[in-house]
Design a protein around this nucleic acid. Structure first.
Lengths: 186, 186
DNA sequence: ATGACTTGCAACATAGATGTTGCAAGTCAT
DNA sequence: ATGACTTGCAACATCTATGTTGCAAGTCAT
C-alpha cells in the first residue's frame, strides 16, 4: 500500500491525470490490487493528499518553528521539507483544495504556523520591518518548490544536498540576488 | 477561434484534464464547433501552447532585453509578461515540454534571452558577482508566476496593478526580504 | 497438510470523452 | 433572392478508463 502511494505521488506530480493502470505499473502491482486497496481513484487521491499533507506538516513541526531561533527554524524547516520530497502536495494543492478537507485543513495550519514564524523573524530583525508577510510566505513556498524540483531533476540523494539547497533557499529569501551597492527599484 | 483558445487557456491552467465539452462551454460555442476548428484535442493543445509561447516571447521581446539598461529591462519584461496573463504556459510547460516542439523551442529561446539579460545585469553591478544565473532565472520565473497567480486570484484589472506587481517582483529578486542589518546564512 | 490471505490475470460492464456525420437555421455578400 | 459559409443540435461510433467479479496460484502461519 505504501508502495502504491509513493508511485502515485511521483506520477501525479508529473501528470495529475495519470491513470490507475499507470499507477499500478509504477508500483509494480496489478491494477486490481490498486483497486482493492483504494475503492476508487478518488479514494486514492484523497488518501494521497492526506498522507502528503501529514508528512509535510511533520517535517515542518519537527523543526520547532515556534521555539527555535527564527533563522534556525527557517533553515531547518526548509531542510526537513526538502528531505520529505513531497512532490505531490504542490501540484495537487492547486487543483483540489476544496475537495480534500483534511489536506486543506493541514495545509492551512501549516500556513498559519509559517506566518507565525515569519512574524517572529520580522520582530527579531531577521526580516525587514516592512516585509509583506503574505507575499514573503508565497515566495518562500515557491523557492522551496523550485529547490525541490531541481533536486528531483538532478537525482539528488538527500542528505547533504538538502542542506545546501536549504541554505540557498534561505539565502535567496533574505538577500535576493542584488548587489549590495547596486540599484534598487522600490 | 480566438475565443476558444482563450477559454481553453483559462480552463487548462486550472485543470489540464478539462474536456472539450468544458472548453466549448467556457467559450460559449458548441463542442462541434471546437472540433471543427481543432481536429483533435491534441491539436487544440498544440495550438494553445504555441500561441501562449509566442505571446510570451513577444512580451519579453518588446521590453528590449538586449539593449535597454538591465534594471529597466528586468522591470519592463516583468510588466509585459504580467500583462499578457498567460496562465497556461506555466502549467503546460511542465508536462508537455517534449511533445510541443514549437513551444519548447520558443521557451528555450526566451530562456537564453533571459540568461543574457541576467548576465548583463551582473556585469552592470545590478546582480551580485557571485549570483548563480541558472538559479536566479528559475527564481525570477517563480516570482513572476506567483505574482501572476496572485493577480488572477485577486481579479486584477491590469494596467497599474501589473506595474506594482512587477516592482514587487524585481524588488524581491534583488533584495529579498532580509533586514539589511540582520543575520545572513551564507 | 490445511485454511486464511494476498495477488495477478482475464473477462466483463459501464460511463464518459472524443471524434464523426447530417441536417436545419442563421448570417453575410452579391 | 441566392449561394457560400458558419453554427448548433442530435445522433452515432469508438475508445479508454474505471470499476467489478471469479478463478487459480502463491505465501504464510498453524
Amino acid at each position: 500500500m505504501r508502495k502504491i502511494l509513493e508511485a502515485a505521488e511521483r506520477l501525479f506530480a508529473v501528470n495529475p491525470a495519470a491513470t490507475m493502470e499507470q499507477v499500478a505499473q509504477a508500483a509494480g502491482v496489478a491494477r486490481t490490487t490498486v483497486h482493492r486497496r483504494f475503492a476508487t481513484r478518488e479514494a486514492l487521491v484523497e488518501e494521497l493528499t492526506g498522507w502528503a499533507a501529514r508528512r509535510f506538516a511533520e517535517a515542518v513541526e519537527s523543526a520547532h518553528p515556534d521555539s527555535a531561533p527564527p533563522l534556525v527554524a527557517l533553515y531547518q524547516v526548509t531542510v526537513n521539507v526538502l528531505r520529505v520530497k513531497t512532490d505531490w502536495w504542490f501540484a495537487m494543492n492547486r487543483t483540489a483544495g476544496d475537495s480534500h478537507r483534511e489536506a486543506a485543513r493541514v495545509h492551512a495550519e501549516v500556513r498559519e504556523g509559517c506566518d507565525r514564524l515569519l512574524r517572529r523573524a520580522r520582530e527579531a530583525g531577521v526580516l525587514r520591518a516592512d516585509a509583506d508577510l503574505d507575499w514573503t510566505r508565497r515566495v518562500y513556498y515557491a523557492l522551496i518548490h523550485e529547490a525541490a524540483t531541481e533536486a528531483a531533476a538532478g537525482g539528488a540523494s538527500g542528505g547533504g544536498d538538502a542542506e545546501a539547497l536549504a541554505t540557498r533557499v534561505v539565502d535567496t529569501l533574505l538577500r535576493g540576488f542584488g548587489s549590495p551597492t547596486g540599484p534598487v527599484i522600490a
